[in-house]
Design a protein around this nucleic acid. Sequence first.
DNA 1: CTGAAAGCGCTAACAC
DNA 2: GTGTTAGCGCTTTCAG
Lengths: 368, 368
Amino acid sequence: MLSITGTITGTITVRHKSNRATIKEVASAAGVSTQTVSRVINNRPDVSPETRKHVQEVIDQLDYQPSALARSLIRQRSYTLGVVTAGLKYIGPSRTLSGITHAAEEAGYSLLLKELPSFETNETESIFQKLFSRHVDGIIWAVPEVGENRNWVDPFTLVSEVPIVYLTMEPIEGLSIVSIDNYYGGKTATLHLIEQGYKNIGHIAGPLSWWEARQRKTGWRDALEEAGLEAGDRQWVEGTWSAASGNRLIPKLYSQFPEMDAIFVSNDQMALSVLQYACNQGIRVPEDLGVVGFDNIPESAYFWPPLTTIDQNLYQVGEAAVREVIKIIEEQKEEQRTLEVETNTFKTNLVERQSSLRNKVKGGVSGK
Amino acid sequence: MLSITGTITGTITVRHKSNRATIKEVASAAGVSTQTVSRVINNRPDVSPETRKHVQEVIDQLDYQPSALARSLIRQRSYTLGVVTAGLKYIGPSRTLSGITHAAEEAGYSLLLKELPSFETNETESIFQKLFSRHVDGIIWAVPEVGENRNWVDPFTLVSEVPIVYLTMEPIEGLSIVSIDNYYGGKTATLHLIEQGYKNIGHIAGPLSWWEARQRKTGWRDALEEAGLEAGDRQWVEGTWSAASGNRLIPKLYSQFPEMDAIFVSNDQMALSVLQYACNQGIRVPEDLGVVGFDNIPESAYFWPPLTTIDQNLYQVGEAAVREVIKIIEEQKEEQRTLEVETNTFKTNLVERQSSLRNKVKGGVSGK
DNA sequence: CTGAAAGCGCTAACAC
DNA sequence: GTGTTAGCGCTTTCAG
């Protein structure tokens, strides 16, 4: 899409002096050695109260701020985490990132951010190299597992360089992983529909190259089979996560599976297009068709009818990842040897709204 | 919301060696001085072909990667940009950030990310200090102008330290700014409704502490007044951007302004709740009520009816900000004196969909 | 073409 | 308590 740019150019005199005071300048201004200044800024005990006070005054006056770069170099510790993400324009990755930024801020760590150009890229090696060259203390690999994108670089080789926490992937022994239990989510959604009395439950899956999409689909299938219901191949289709794909696929699914009376859709965007289709075709939701989505995007409470969905707390996942990686970083300082490697899995929550409540009294809009 | 956490703990032997090769090691392994290695990795001409080849082999063999930290220190140039954002969980800020990451990657710059805990915080001073202490070459202040959040620190003082590009704010002479023309967007939306023959056009504004919300509202008002239509105070209400607020306010607006036959809503989420309300009340859109939103979120094409909205290319804004700040960084190396400080303003685009098309033949879903 | 010396800004280890 | 020396990993003089 073309946009017109308006540019107002004004020539103005600006000088970037960039005259940050150094420890040396502070030292000579205060008439002490750099060492003493160092002791003051690091709150070391062995400085006389008067000296400390005096040095502190000079520091304030010169607006001195120690260089984190120089410190990182000598301490071999940067208090910086590398974060690798992908698809920031989607709600999921950015929610996760938000959890990461807050937890990192709280712990006093800075963040070096890289966004992969796509979910499946083979540039992962160079991304890691760039992060290593900036001496990150740890890495959070916040890229969902898609296709072979976990296999470009051997994770164990990498972990030997620096602690790494992986997000959203199939648990592997020896790797630190934080995930949402998507299988549980898919199962919960489907069980809910079964409880509501629906018998013929279809599914619009996400792209099956995604681990999360496969997990959700398996949850759907297992719930049906365990309830003694059919879960055949004609009962599901594979989407791309986009509402456009849902829009395209829902007629196909109906033609394959005409008796369908409920549907578990693998994300809220695609569920939205199902609601739109239903509205267009005069199919009543939830009477003729029960619909459950996944993600609990903020809008879903305002769809028509309000969408029952599976809430996943990705913010929490981001926070947990930061805490986990920092834990490993701190531990490795002490005992150089064995580490507890954990897999943290968060459960999802069912958010019941009108789109699936055939039995109960239909209320108004309910938030999450 | 409470989530159950499942933790699988496995003790495993992992050793983080972190044995990155140094230039010294490469030098002695290759039997040359560190200086020669430095020349090779920086592609300097004055190395004999044989030496270069030999050194390069040793580098490859040792998997040597120069330390960006040490380089930054000595060169007084980090090739790192500070990015300050807020509200990453919203679609706008993360789209902008995505544009920033891609343009930065392309230009060979790393990104240090900070997210403000809220849009209005007075911690801005310390955020800047932290970025300075990491020697960022420039800063992108990607926080929308809300309330007094631009006045915590004098921007001119800051700019004297390091180049800064501000996003989404009222142009100020001497500051480098990249914005969307929200006034134009609001005007375009309203003119479109006028062209469709609507006469009584209401408005749900965003929170007026936001510069963008004020601009959109002024665009709405001016469009009406220039067309000789009324734009009184009873014709608008102030929301919070959330769908919940729209849901709460739309009855109020109707009671203030019963003859309303169209509405310009300041974002798509609130517009969604208007559509839901209309559906509930049996108000036909677009026949009884024309609706135009703002933002063009991906879902808006799948609302019912599909939502006419104003598309703003925030990805492009992010890219432009990176290019602008890098331009200033490079320029300041050469001529220490005068700089061209620019204000870049991008126009918005009207995306016509069913929710406002009373006159034209109603088609199906139209994408952007 | 190549190496030796100095130093970016800071801190660890040792003297006094 | 405080200062001195050395050096994190690299690049920039300046000799040779």
